[in-house]
Simulated scan of single mutants.
Amino acid sequence: MAENKMEEFSTEEAVKEAVENAEEMKEEAATAENSEEAAEAKDSEKESKKVFKKKEKKKDKRDEQIEQLNDRVMRQMAEFENFRRRTEVEKSQMFATGAKSIVEKILPVVDNFERGLATVEEGADPFADGMLMIYKQLLTTLDEAGVKPIEAVGQEFNPDFHNAVMHVEDEEVGENIVVEEFQKGYMYNDTVVRHSMVKVAN
């Protein structure tokens, strides 16, 4: 009986030990398998990183080229826009300067018309009437071109528009008032072509 019990006990222990060994071997195999899978995963991750880095490097070069080209195009567009604006300003200035010089040359003709017509009564001579019509047409044309006379008599003296050549004391007139105009002044648009030559009171 004792021997049978001993045999049963040793058999149970052997089975138990065999089961434990089998479980340990399973765990070891699973660990080894997991470590292999992890190693494979790491390797594949490294490879994918390398490929991605290569792609990134290629993309970076292209992006740099695109940025450089965009920058160059933007600079050229800005330069062209500046050139266009500068050219427009220069053109308008040249036109204004040319127009002003022509107006300056025409004004003495207007002055001579006024001097000549001041000595003739209207309606007395058909020739004088013809000259008066030409004078009025000339003034209309100048007005349409932007040339306008500067108001002087009765206005307060303004050195921007008037050139005082005489001074008089007059109690009937206010201080610094233009009482007489010797030569009419003209403006072309917003610039003075010729100052009015005037006499100022007080």
Rank of each mutant, 00 (worst) to 15 (best):
D111F: 03
A124G: 06
E90G: 00
K148L: 14
T140L: 06
Y186G: 06
D125L: 00
G146S: 03
G98M: 04
A152N: 10
E181M: 01
P126Y: 08
P159T: 00
V89L: 01
L117S: 06
K199S: 14
E20V: 04
L139F: 08
R86V: 11
M6R: 13
I134W: 01
Q155W: 04
E88C: 01
H167R: 12
M94W: 02
E13I: 01
T191W: 02
L69R: 15
A78H: 13
V109K: 06
F52P: 04
E24R: 10
T141M: 09
K91H: 10
E104C: 04
V51N: 12
A29F: 06
R85E: 15
L69W: 13
D125W: 00
Q93K: 11
R84C: 14
A145V: 02
A18F: 03
E12G: 12
A152H: 02
R85N: 15
S48F: 14
T140M: 11
A39H: 14
E37R: 10
K136G: 11
N176P: 02
V168N: 06
E81K: 12
L139C: 12
V120D: 08
M6H: 09
N112C: 01
E33T: 06
G154A: 08
V147C: 08
E17R: 07
A41Q: 12
L138F: 08
E7C: 09
N4A: 11
G154E: 10
V109R: 05
T11G: 03
D60P: 00
M74T: 15
F52R: 12
I177S: 01
N34Y: 05
Q65P: 05
E90D: 06
E181G: 03
Q93C: 11
K50D: 15
L107Y: 05
Q76P: 10
E121I: 06
E56A: 06
F95P: 04
M133W: 08
